[in-house]
């Protein structure tokens, strides 16, 4: 019973927050809705017995979104004083949201300890006795090895692409030339000047 309630709760919140991610005009708000969506998707993962993927979803995606958030804040012209102005007014909403998240965590844990949802057909059914990470590792490095290696190539392409499209060699910029710095002697760098009183120095 509690699994069903938890499933519908998570699924509903995922859908609503995904819709709000797209429709909210403020980019910062839409990033926050995205985090909520990821959080609830993680809850769904816990329900099907994929705890490891749930943790990954929270750590990787919410972490990545936090970085993205930073970029958004840096790139868009957002007035921070205006943002902070409503802090007291929005404090209670924020508190309610975080309370809701805490409640969701408890519901998820409750549902999880009551046993996950079982699916009729799966390519790779989960053996309850094998820990999640071990099960994934065993599949990833045997059955899906080929795709795993290929995914590595996809990442390589992404890396090459990012470098090709953004890297520029600038001949006019001032590089640090360590060789020159180290081989420099004090007699090249220091000049003794006899400065007469009252006349100043010429450099």
């Amino acid at each position: 019973m509690i699994q069903a309630i938890a499933f519908y709760l998570f699924a509903f919140v995922v859908l609503v927050s995904a819709a709000l991610t797209i429709s909210s005009r403020n980019p910062v708000h839409s990033v926050l809705w995205l985090i909520l969506a990821f959080f609830n998707a993680a809850g769904l993962m816990v329900l099907v017995g994929a705890e490891f993927i749930a943790m990954l979803l929270v750590i990787v995606y919410v972490g990545a979104v936090a970085v993205l958030f930073l970029f958004v804040v840096m790139m868009l012209d957002i007035d921070f004083t205006e943002l902070r102005a409503g802090f007291v007014r929005y404090f209670w909403i924020g508190l309610a949201l975080s309370l809701a998240l805490v409640c969701e965590i408890f519901i998820a844990i409750g549902a999880w300890s009551a046993g996950g949802i079982d699916f009729a057909r799966r390519a790779a059914p989960i053996d309850g006795a094998v820990p999640n990470i071990q099960a994934i590792g065993e599949l990833l490095y045997s059955r899906y090895l080929f795709v795993f290696e290929l995914a590595g190539l996809v990442l390589l392409v992404a890396m090459i692409g990012a470098i090709v499209l953004t890297f520029r060699q600038r001949p006019d910029s001032r590089h640090q030339r360590i060789r020159q710095q180290v081989s420099r002697r004090s007699k090249d760098a220091i000049r003794n000047v006899n400065a007469p009183v009252g006349q100043g120095v010429e450099l």
């Binding site: 290929l150 190539l153 996809v154 392409v157 992404a158 090459i160 692409g161 090709v164």
Partner: peptide, 8 residues
């Protein structure tokens, strides 16, 4: 893999 290289 094909598409990503193509975008670049």
């Amino acid at each position: 893999l094909q598409s990503l290289a193509a975008y670049v």
